[in-house]
Design a protein around this nucleic acid. Structure first.
Length: 505
RNA sequence: GCCCCCAUCGUCUAGAGGCCUAGGACGCCACCCUUUCAAGGUGGAGAUCAGGGGUUCGAAUCCCCUUGGGGGCACCA
């Protein structure tokens, strides 16, 4: 039988990094096995589910390149797949029908206990240091008793009978697992009093109906797996193979959460993490290829992936390592690709500067292209492009007199150097060509003639024209700036320095 | 409280009884390269393999216990 596995997120929040990892492992496993990867939206929590979250999930998966074979929407097309619909709220009839069957077979029963009663039970159990469980008040009601309650207008939930036994299964990640059903909290509610289905029930009904062969999901579902197995059995369905993935952890080793970590995929995307890095990093968080290579693209991961090699202990999400890997993938992008991905980040940065009241010049395609070799290897995240090169597009850069003077120099020397450098650039460099190669020799010569360290001269110029001490290579920077702007900024810096000097002299 | 899972450098991991005086990567430190910042290169510090018992000629690797951590036990998913 060919492999079918699914990613089943609920749209109660933006696509979570942990969900991405689960989706990725499902995808890798399905592709590796030549099986199907199915996306199912678990939106039965009406109170918390929102369409924009569903959109965020679909967008995120598309962006990562984790395309699904069946699901609510495929690559912008309408839903597709023979086991649809793929949104649970569109599958209510299926659940109702399945519940009906269980009721008929007395594998489930209506329960009339009020939430208040259940709450009181739970409190009592807690006080008696008992594990919380349903006491079974409605488990053996006679037909008349049920009718009486119905007559009172009490809306019943439907409970699934959980018999006493040890349920065992062989988890692909954890091996043999056995759980006593008596520790699971008693008979399970599968339908709310309004008739809507609950998670454990929908999972079993859907996985059965969608012919899922492998359930690959987070470890938080491990203890609940017997419930699903019992339900599969009651439904007369085959029991899929399970693989429970280790949790992704906060730095304090608790389950990764919004409170303590940045969990939304979209947030990483907005910071300029590239899909290659996110996929690569997450693949290696809990799985390893067994070799010492660690930079893999999606297709390479598919070739190598194996659930056997999934780690069983939880893994702390290490942003530093992600950033390193992101830099690796940014550098591996083709120039065209890099340009296309980086530009929106620069544009956005400049827009922000504009709204902050600064005068900004719009970058031209050609000058951005020229910038690529200078910046591509300097970005840990794409969003860093703004800070790196915005001085090229700002009408005025703020130059601090303090920064302008190199460590070994004083104000006088700096002033002299900037004026001299300006002269050299104005007189010796052709306005037409103005290339990095022709800038360097005369400026080095200048430093030598005056007995300055070239580095000091260059630093003074750098700060003068960019307002920063860390920039792309100086001569390329001057070229990017252009002759006119370079001269202008040297002038202005000289004024700033002279102005700062004046009061003290 | 009960049940389940987990346990190798700070972090991600290699290791499926002898190849381990435990390997790689991130991070950290130093040096090299260098006009700054990165990138890159070289080297270094960093794990008595949580602790204790077994099994075995031999254990990070198998078993048991302890400890620690995590997860689960909803008319949430």
């Amino acid at each position: 039988m060919s492999v079918r596995c699914r990613f089943a997120p609920s749209p109660t929040g933006p696509l979570h990094i942990g969900g991405v990892r689960t989706a990725l492992y499902n995808y890798l496993f399905a592709r590796k096995q030549g099986g199907a990867f199915i996306l199912r939206i678990e939106d039965t929590d009406v109170a918390r589910s929102r369409v924009e979250f569903e959109r965020d999930i679909l967008t995120g998966l598309h962006w990562l390149g984790l395309e699904w074979d069946e699901g609510p929407e495929v690559a912008g097309l309408a839903a597709r797949g023979a086991y649809g619909p793929y949104r649970q709220m569109e599958r209510l009839a299926l659940y109702r029908e399945a519940a009906e069957r269980l009721l008929e077979g007395d594998l489930a029963y209506p329960c009339y206990c009020s939430p208040e009663q259940l709450d009181a039970d739970r409190k009592a159990q807690e006080a008696a240091r008992q594990p919380p469980h349903y006491v079974g008040r409605c488990a053996r009601l006679s037909a008349q008793e049920r009718r009486a309650r119905e007559a009172e207008g009490i809306k019943a939930v439907v409970r699934f009978r959980v018999g006493a036994e040890r349920v065992a299964f062989d988890d692909l990640v954890r091996g043999h697992v056995e759980i006593d059903t008596r520790t699971m909290g008693g008979d399970l509610i599968i339908l709310r009093s309004d008739g809507s289905p609950l998670y454990h029930f929908t999972v079993a009904v859907d996985d059965a109906q969608m012919a899922i062969t492998h359930v690959v999901r987070g470890e938080e579902h491990l203890s609940n797996t017997p419930k699903h197995i019992l339900l599969f059995r009651a439904l007369g369905a085959d029991i899929p193979t399970f693989a429970h993935l280790p949790l992704i952890l906060n730095p304090d080793r608790t389950k990764m959460s919004k409170r303590k970590s940045q969990t939304a995929l979209s947030a990483y995307r907005e910071e300029g993490f590239v899909r290659e890095a996110l996929v690569n990093y997450l693949a290696l968080l809990g799985w390893s290829s067994g070799t010492e290579e660690e930079l893999f693209r999606l297709e390479e991961l598919v070739e190598r992936f194996d659930l056997d090699r999934v780690q069983s202990g939880g893994a702390v999400f290490d942003r530093e390592r992600l950033e390193w890997m992101n830099g690796q993938w940014i550098r591996r992008l083709s120039q065209e690709e890099f340009l296309a991905r980086m530009t929106p980040f620069l544009v956005r940065h400049l827009e922000r500067r504009t709204s902050a009241g600064e005068r900004v010049r719009q970058p031209e395609e050609a000058e951005l292209r020229a910038l690529v070799p200078l910046v591509q290897e300097r970005l840990p995240v794409l969003a860093a492009i703004g800070e790196l090169v915005d001085f090229l597009f700002l009408e005025r850069v703020a130059v601090e007199p303090g920064q302008l003077v190199p460590k070994r120099w004083d104000q006088r020397t700096t002033l002299e150097a900037l004026e001299a450098a300006r002269g050299v650039i104005r007189d010796e460099i052709g306005p037409v060509t103005f290339e990095a190669d022709e800038l360097e020799p005369p400026l080095r010569r200048l430093a030598e003639e005056r007995g300055w360290k070239a580095g000091d001269l260059f630093m003074a110029i750098r700060v003068a024209v960019t307002g920063r001490t860390a920039t792309p290579p100086l001569f390329d920077t001057l070229v990017a700036l252009g002759r006119e702007r370079t001269l202008e900024r040297l002038d202005r810096a000289t004024d700033v320095l002279a102005g700062a000097a004046a009061p003290t002299q």
